[in-house]
Nucleic acid binder design. Sequence first.
DNA 1: GTGGTCTAGACCACG
DNA 2: GTGGTCTAGACCACT
Lengths: 124, 124, 124, 124
Amino acid sequence: MLIQIDMSIDKPIYEQIRDAIIKGILKGELTKGKQLPSSRALASSLSVNMHTVNKAYNILKQDGFVSVIKRKGVVINDKNQYRADEAYLNILEEKLESIVTEAKCRGLTADEINSIIGKIYNQI
Amino acid sequence: MLIQIDMSIDKPIYEQIRDAIIKGILKGELTKGKQLPSSRALASSLSVNMHTVNKAYNILKQDGFVSVIKRKGVVINDKNQYRADEAYLNILEEKLESIVTEAKCRGLTADEINSIIGKIYNQI
Amino acid sequence: MLIQIDMSIDKPIYEQIRDAIIKGILKGELTKGKQLPSSRALASSLSVNMHTVNKAYNILKQDGFVSVIKRKGVVINDKNQYRADEAYLNILEEKLESIVTEAKCRGLTADEINSIIGKIYNQI
Amino acid sequence: MLIQIDMSIDKPIYEQIRDAIIKGILKGELTKGKQLPSSRALASSLSVNMHTVNKAYNILKQDGFVSVIKRKGVVINDKNQYRADEAYLNILEEKLESIVTEAKCRGLTADEINSIIGKIYNQI
DNA sequence: GTGGTCTAGACCACG
DNA sequence: GTGGTCTAGACCACT
């Protein structure tokens, strides 16, 4: 499980960590019950601050991807603890709205957008 | 052409203005050659800072949606000045990547994502 | 609106701040749209760190009590944004379970507990 | 008498043990004079540290629920050794205060809270 | 001047 | 040795 942080882009570090872990779950590298590195350890290996890692871990916990077990560590949850629900679908739609609007305005058809989605979906 | 600013969400105001104008173009309310309100006027009617409107206008100009014509104001460009190109497609793919990753991780199929896209696409 | 922090009890400071603000809402001192002091200002007046105040504010935001408006401040939400829902009722039940169990074990009747609840409910 | 420890919630293990034993007393599984397993034995069967069990036992002793008898072990006390007194009622009220405040703020009536209490009270 | 993000370093409870 | 909490102080984007 490799996490790459890019300080030059403007995505916050904690989001990059969050996204990398979600990707790890998706790729099957992080399976249910598997333990993440301690916040100190990951912080040190990424050369970032412990609190930054903790922030990522707490967001993942809030989103149901992991359980933070005090004095034990952070472990990956079961799939159905982060299966898409109504609330998530609303957020997803919101996130997509301005992207799709711009794409349509720039002349892309729904099919063209969908083929990009499909490409991303299959290559991860 | 109505622009609604929502201070409570964390999308920057200049992005909300930008998105609203792109939406206006898409809906046919803002057609080629049509003039946008002066930044002073729009700022006043939205109760935001003039620099915020200018920032939105400059991004729109950079993206090819409008031209800033001296002593004339800001006018909407022709469609082919902002038609999707290679560079835009790369940015689009980047924007979609982490969204699609999370959606897949949460159990959505590519078809389900596409149907959300389709829904957004058709209702705007 | 007075907030009192007690360093000697073991309730975290950010929870004390959170609870004080909820109490303020309940007492009608903090009404919809009213602005909370900036995190710096409140931190300074309570002699605690800004991050501690921010943590309280973010929890209140997450729970629907306030909106955090970047570069503007934190404002109280409308009642129906924090009206009890299913999720809250579950949490509430969890919180009450061990308390009620102990009370029953110590010989209190349901009526006795309820009269304590009633007393608290009416005096705030 | 079954004790279930849940590492994933953030209630300390020693409190979970304490609560489980109080529940056992309430359900009549642990009656006056009955002996609790040795801390070593319970720790082993729960896969937790012996000190954690001892901490739970010591709190139970302090609260009057059990007596620690040398060379005999830990035995359940008589009901009137842990019957609710003034001190306990004060603690109880304190514990309930912030819970009730939030519930009221979220629009619950005293009756609604009491019906939740009643439900919990009767099902244990 | 606001909140957001990040760093560095500390103490604590729990186990 | 873990995560939780707190402090002190910094820079940034946005307005």
